[in-house]
Design a binder for these strands. Structure first.
Lengths: 344, 344
DNA sequence: TTGAAAGCGCTAACAC
DNA sequence: GTGTTAGCGCTTTCAA
């Protein structure tokens, strides 16, 4: 019968008595310390196997000062972009023997720093994904979160690598593409307030407008999900634009769906573009033209950066800058001759 | 200057000296123990605030024998169904102050039990999501994983509640729907081998065929993602079926995309159905007819069951059985008059 | 090579 | 009411 120490589960002490050695020796064997007599080591291993002993990670963590776990906080776990980042991060970390703890802030920016702090204390490092908090707040808490990696956000706090997608350039590429197709009236369905990536798109659009004064660009309120796009149909039609840049693929899909319900053709009547290139994008009808971002890779890179920080490798990890790639599919086409009323 | 104990971070000892009390008193204050003199408590709180002290969760966990963390292991984090379960679980657990640790087995069933064991040891409980391992293996490791909740899988091991979706009934409802629309030749695009939910669908289909001997049902090999559906176009057309039951929504979307590329109309030429009702399903073109499963709710319920186990409430948590609801949208329609060749 | 003992940061039983 | 002390389960000096 497997004797159990106080707690109920089998501990190092049980193995020690069974093998007739001290805790210390069991610990050494379990950690592959070769300063143990092979014969004793074998005895310990046998005892451990028989008892199905597995070291308690909490005890280990306390003794070693590390948890082999990293945390990630995301604004919304329902968003495919963050899901993909999580997936990439999780896979890369797992390959190095690390697990990931998730924290969803549900877009409540006031909760972010608390969540981040709590997660960080349980982990060896943290990935903060597109945090919605203010620059000031981010800069203030960043030092207490170190090792910390930022995604789609930068901070003045030192030692914090950032992985950011150049949404500004991406949106310009998409706009150029629409102009080349003959669209003279564009509309941008904006993302959530406080989203840094939305600000980057806005800046990109300003640059675009400065370079193309003859193109009319209407700015529309928005969000980041299907419904945003679906509900934006009226506003889009009212704008008279024939080329629509949706904040992301989700919004674009919602919009296409709404357009379809109204009997409008994409791209026949209106061209629609997304952003991110989530896995679904190529399977929409029509397949979505979008700014492709290597999202999963972003998660993997986040792990690399974090790992370097945890291992204290090098001085300042460089961070990274990602260029979206224009992925032209079937949701964009030549502009129709302009007409006075679009809806009827 | 904040004095630091050996490790580098501020510990309970630092607060104790600053407040001029013992560790124990600080601990009492931090845990809201009211047997502390209000004045001293205030002094402690002030010291803690000034030092920005936050208790180390690892130390707490070791002392309390609990981590306030639960684990979930999923076969594939890229699958929207598991993402939704994770989301529901994470949200529900967060409301009770629990975090979630994720483990992705990447469909490698041999890794599942190791992952599960490791995750469990760091957590207070575990959710095993549609595990691919054998019944025997599951039953063997289940006791060591307790508190444990199963999703879409059952086991003979005692004390393990299961939350399972009645895919068998769901698939029958969908088949009935297609038959009512006049389809006499159906095809089923199967899911991954070793998936219990696929077996349930198969069983449901058998029951359906027994009740409808005049309906022809072709079984096709498959998988669980877009590509499966996309690549199945030829097989589907070769089957001559006009009503296709895809394993899930992803497969259905891939299939519709492939059909569209071939110039086939859905539902004009072929009706397609999915399963799960992932958020994207209503935004496909045409919107997808599917068996709606309250996936996020499944995650929430998993937490409720696990919580009951952790709190040792009641005797045997009941588990639960979920009936999919047929969600008729635009991807299914009346069968065309049969013709000899469908492609060409 | 091995055991005894200290310590990781915290909580809680016990004594004052 | 508060301090002292003994763990929680493990790793790691330090002696032997």
């Amino acid at each position: 019968m497997a004797r159990k120490s106080a707690s109920g589960r089998i501990g190092i002490a049980d193995v020690a008595v069974k093998a007739g050695v001290s805790h210390a020796t069991v610990s050494r064997v379990m950690n592959g310390n070769f300063t143990v007599d092979p014969e004793i080591a074998a005895r310990v291993r046998a005892a451990a196997a028989e008892l199905k002993y597995q070291p308690n990670p909490v005890g280990r963590s306390l003794a070693l000062g590390k948890t082999d776990t990293i945390g990630i906080v995301v604004p919304d776990l329902a968003n495919p972009t963050f899901q993909a980042i999580l997936r990439g991060l999780s896979r890369a970390a797992a390959q190095d023997g690390y697990r990931v703890l998730i924290a969803d802030s549900f877009e409540v920016s006031s909760e972010e720093s608390i969540l981040a702090g709590e997660a960080r204390r349980r982990c060896d490092g943290l990935v903060l994904c597109a945090p919605r908090m203010s620059d000031a707040e981010l800069e203030e808490i960043a030092p207490s979160l170190h090792p910390l990696v930022l995604i789609n956000r930068t901070t003045a706090a030192p030692g914090v690598p950032s992985l950011v997608v150049d949404y500004g350039q991406g949106v310009q590429d998409i706009a150029e593409h629409l102009v080349e197709l003959g669209h003279a009236r564009l509309a941008f369905l904006a993302g959530p307030h406080g989203s840094a990536s939305n600000d980057m798109r806005l800046k990109g659009l300003e640059a675009f407008m400065a370079a193309h004064p003859h193109v009319d660009v209407t700015m529309l309120e928005g969000g980041s999900d299907f419904d945003t796009g679906h509900e934006a149909v009226d506003a889009v039609l009212a704008s008279g634009a024939t080329g629509i840049l949706a904040f992301n693929d989700l919004v674009a899909m919602g919009l296409m769906s709404g357009l379809h319900e109204r009997g409008l053709e994409v791209p026949g009547d209106i061209s629609v573009t997304g952003f991110d290139d989530i896995p679904f994008a190529r399977y929409t009808t029509p397949a979505l033209t979008t700014g492709a971002v290597p999202i999963t890779e972003l998660g993997e890179q986040a792990w690399r950066q974090l790992r370097a920080l945890i291992r204290k490798e090098g001085d300042e990890p460089p961070g990274g800058w990602y260029q979206p790639r224009l992925e032209v599919r079937a949701s964009t086409g030549p502009a129709k001759a302009p007409r006075t009323t679009v809806h009827g």
